[in-house]
């Protein structure tokens, strides 16, 4: 028992070459040499079947809750799928009509632009502030670990909770932010953070930056810790300190982690729905409507499931384009 707890506390490094061996024969190898060949093969087949059984529930779940929805969504996007479908069971085939409607709607360009601004603004803010804080926490000072872990809180709170709190902070008349700015005489009247078409998107981006900083900080901090000190020592002998050390040592060494953070950030930000629905519900006058919220509105408020599916698929394609770019970039990084 003491052995097991020890091991679970500190996973030992790979010490066994055996793990590299292909499956199947592993358990057999030594002990089954005396068994005649045909029986060994059937045993191996049974062994492999057993191994697959461990994987089957996960494969089934992934197929039902990720595979099926994607396929179903593609099918639905070519159908006239509305509330009537639930009663009649009929969803007439309409070809590309849903895509034409969705893409030619004036709302599409608005939500595409908003999605781009929301994503770029959020990622930029989260990353820059997260990296600055990560570098700051590289310093050795008392309470470093505790303070850093408390910074995770905004990221762990349910998004709808954060939206509710920020709605109250950003309230035009009695929100904390306007009162604070008013006390400092920066503004005279309440700023309509969430109710003005020109400010709402900025406010939503700001809140999303606040939510994303802890994630960026944690991952980038981990990446910085991996950079060996010897590099900085060698660099300082050549006169690379401060900004120079950052540019020539930190940044190149951190690049793999940076690309992971940025790609995950883009993929997650493109999907964001909770924050926008909670803060502005896409308003005022669609000024915070993104492709994701628009897809939700089409399906679940206007009950045009076919059009909602079409827009959802467009979102998947945008995500995939980013993923492919990322995979190509990381392959190039490996080749280097």
């Amino acid at each position: 028992m003491s052995l097991t707890t020890d091991l679970s506390q500190a996973p030992p490094p790979h010490e066994n070459a055996a793990k590299g061996m292909p499956g199947g024969g592993k358990a057999g190898g030594g002990t089954l040499d005396t068994v005649p060949a045909p029986r060994r093969r059937s045993r191996q087949r049974r062994e492999r079947l057993f191994q697959w059984l461990f994987l089957v529930p996960a494969v089934v779940y992934m197929a039902l809750f990720f595979g099926y929805p994607v396929v179903k969504n593609v099918v639905m996007s070519f159908q006239d799928y509305t509330t009537a479908t639930f009663f009649t069971g009929e969803a007439p085939w309409v070809g590309l009509a849903n895509y034409v409607t969705v893409l030619s709607s004036s709302l599409f360009s608005t939500s595409l632009l908003n999605t781009a601004l929301f994503t770029v603004g959020s990622i930029l803010g989260q990353f820059v502030i997260g990296l600055a804080l990560a570098i700051f926490f590289q310093r050795k000072f008392p309470l470093n670990g505790i303070l850093r872990s408390l910074l995770l809180l905004p990221w762990l709170l349910p998004l709808i909770v954060s939206s509710a709190v920020w709605r109250w902070i950003l309230d035009k008349d009695s929100g904390a932010l306007n009162r604070f700015l008013g006390d400092l005489n920066i503004v005279d009247t309440g700023v309509p953070w969430l109710t003005s078409t020109s400010l709402a998107l900025i406010a939503v981006v700001g809140v999303n930056i606040w939510i994303g900083i802890p994630f960026n900080l944690t991952i980038l901090y981990g990446g910085l810790q991996e950079i060996p000190d010897e590099l900085y020592e060698a660099g300082s002998l050549d006169g690379a300190t401060g900004w120079k050390a950052f540019r020539h040592i930190t940044w190149p060494m951190l690049r793999p982690v940076v690309s992971v953070v940025l790609v995950l950030g883009v993929v997650y930000t493109l999907k964001v729905l909770d924050i926008i629905l909670g803060l502005t519900n896409g308003g005022p006058a669609n000024s915070t409507q993104t492709i994701a919220t628009q897809s939700y509105a089409l399906s679940f408020q206007e009950f045009k499931f076919g059009e909602g599916a079409a827009l959802g698929n467009i979102l998947v394609i945008i995500s995939l384009v980013f993923a492919v770019l990322y995979l190509r970039a990381s392959r190039r990084a490996v080749d280097e």
Binding site: M76, L273, S299, F305, A309
Partner: peptide, 9 residues
Amino acid sequence: IPGIVVANA
């Protein structure tokens, strides 16, 4: 895969 795609289906 965006959650809204999963939810829709």
